[in-house]
């Protein structure tokens, strides 16, 4: 744990700058993917009919932005999984090992939430097991969007041609064709890709609520982690870290 202490309060760094950049870029990309994804699903605004078609490309832009966002998400997805295992700051994967201690902590974090902070028996200065699992769920959902989205993308390249060479669609077919069979065809893939958007939105809703809730009830400034990278943690007198 890094940080400096002042009495019973310690200041801890929880997200280095690079992580915070990834966090917000990821947020923006997911936001863009949601807004444009809904447009792709049901174009909810009409282009002005009087405009000449060459200048607007409303759907074209929505699809382009969706795919730019998708590429951003895909790259960050790979980066995140790398950091899970090999980050120099903290390796979240360690928190996911199914040990007894982690099980206890997971339960304690939940107990804290459902007793409305009347009971708090875990160290809130570091990443806890519950949040580690919750964040992993996000990355798995995004990974799932990556597979289903790339399947939706590659099926339209039926000719097998691509400006960067045939290896690219071939690779995507190899990696994502299982979704075609798993979800009963292309419409099934589209259905689950669309539905996973709602899972992601529900994920975000809980995440935002929970971080605000922690900030309000724990009074440790958790919400600041995403901005300044640091929070404070309460300690028993005389047990300041480091």
């Amino acid at each position: 744990m890094n940080g400096e202490a002042s009495g019973t309060i310690v200041r801890v760094t929880r997200m280095p700058k690079s992580w915070r950049i990834f966090h917000w870029v990821n947020f923006l990309a997911v936001f863009a993917a949601v807004v444009t994804g809904i447009y792709i699903a049901r174009p909810y605004y009409q282009a002005m009919i009087a405009e000449p078609a060459v200048r607007k490309f409303v759907m074209g832009w929505n699809r382009a932005i969706h795919l730019y966002a998708a590429i951003t998400i895909d790259v960050l997805c790979v980066v995140s999984f790398y950091l899970y295992f090999l980050s120099r700051f903290e390796r979240p994967v360690r928190k996911l090992l199914p040990t007894r201690e982690h099980g206890r902590e997971f339960f304690e974090v939940l107990a804290n939430f459902f007793t409305f902070n009347r009971r708090k028996r875990f160290d809130s200065a570091e990443l806890d097991t519950f949040n580690a699992a919750w964040f992993t769920l996000l990355h798995l959902l995004l990974l799932f969007q990556l597979f289903t989205g790339l399947q939706l993308y590659v099926y339209s390249l039926e000719s097998g041609l691509s400006s960067v060479g045939g290896w690219w669609p071939w690779l995507m077919h190899m990696a994502t064709d299982w979704t075609y069979w798993a979800f009963g065809g292309r419409m099934g893939v589209r259905w689950v890709h669309h539905f996973t958007m709602y899972l992601l939105l529900a994920w975000i809703a809980f995440h935002v609520y929970y971080e605000i809730w922690r900030t309000v009830y724990w009074r440790e400034g958790d919400i600041a982690i995403a901005f300044g990278g640091e929070k404070i943690a309460r300690r028993l007198p005389g047990t300041a870290a480091e």
């Binding site: 409305f116 902070n117 160290d123 809130s124 009074r219 047990t239």
Partner: peptide, 12 residues
């Protein structure tokens, strides 16, 4: 219950 200002939290 909001954690009190200055009140100790969990042991490290």
């Amino acid at each position: 219950k909001k954690s009190d200002e200055g009140a100790p939290g969990a042991p490290p």
